[in-house]
């Protein structure tokens, strides 16, 4: 555990909590892609199956359970409790174009051809692109609520911090996991355009709106 890893995890946790609170307090999931949230629930489910097979630490177990629990709570709020506010017309990204290739890739390129390892690889690949339906939705509507941009910033920052964590671990522990690193770089790059808008607009007190 190093400072980048810890702050990365906390940034991830902050993102998840921000989204849950935003939906809960405003009693609305307008502007939120339910498809991205389903993908994240799928990501956590397939990645944390090792909860059943091995114990790493209390921190590890608690965080995994919190992430999974919050992911399903978010999906429940969007598709059940506040379904009336869900903007399905704008959430039109075709997720099969992500899930099918990612599934194929995880079978082809993995560390070990075993069910649990393939599912872990699937989750790593899927996480790297799971935000695309959300970004697609924002590009379609041309705007995002400020609180939604805070959520996206924390979510993007988390994987960027993990990149520093992997650099740290490579130098000080000789550890590296090429699958996680490549997927992590892809994931972070997908946020770059958003990071730019966040810094130049949202942090200067303006609403995030895209030119028509």
């Amino acid at each position: 555990m190093n400072i980048f890893r810890l702050t990365g995890d906390l940034s991830h946790l902050a993102a998840i909590i921000i989204l849950l609170l935003k939906i809960w307090k405003s009693r609305s999931c307008a502007g939120i892609s339910g498809k991205s949230q389903i993908l994240f629930a799928l990501v956590f489910t397939t990645r944390y199956l090792d909860l059943f097979t091995s114990f790493i630490s209390l921190y590890n177990t608690c965080m995994k359970l919190i992430y999974i629990g919050c992911a399903y709570a978010t999906v429940y709020l969007i598709y059940a409790k506040f379904r009336a506010t869900y903007d399905g017309n704008h959430d039109s990204f075709r997720v099969e174009f992500l899930v099918v290739p990612v599934g194929g890739l995880s079978v082809l390129i993995n560390h070990d051809f075993s069910p649990l390892e393939i599912l872990w690889t699937f989750s790593i690949y899927l996480e790297s692109v799971a935000i695309l339906p959300q970004l697609f939705m924002i590009s379609k509507t041309g705007e995002a609520e400020t609180i939604t941009t805070h959520y996206l910033f924390c979510l993007g920052l988390y994987r960027a911090l993990y990149l520093f964590n992997w650099i740290w671990r490579f130098y000080f522990e000789g550890f590296f996991d090429m699958i996680a690193i490549v997927a992590g770089v892809v994931q972070t790059v997908l946020y770059c355009d958003f990071f730019y808008l966040y810094v130049t607009k949202v942090l200067k007190g303006k609403k995030l709106s895209l030119p028509a």
């Binding site: 091995s54 995994k64 070990d112 550890f175 996991d177």
Partner: peptide
Amino acid sequence: RRVTGGKDEL
């Protein structure tokens, strides 16, 4: 590198 088994990172 631990290939199979539990993962430390989240």
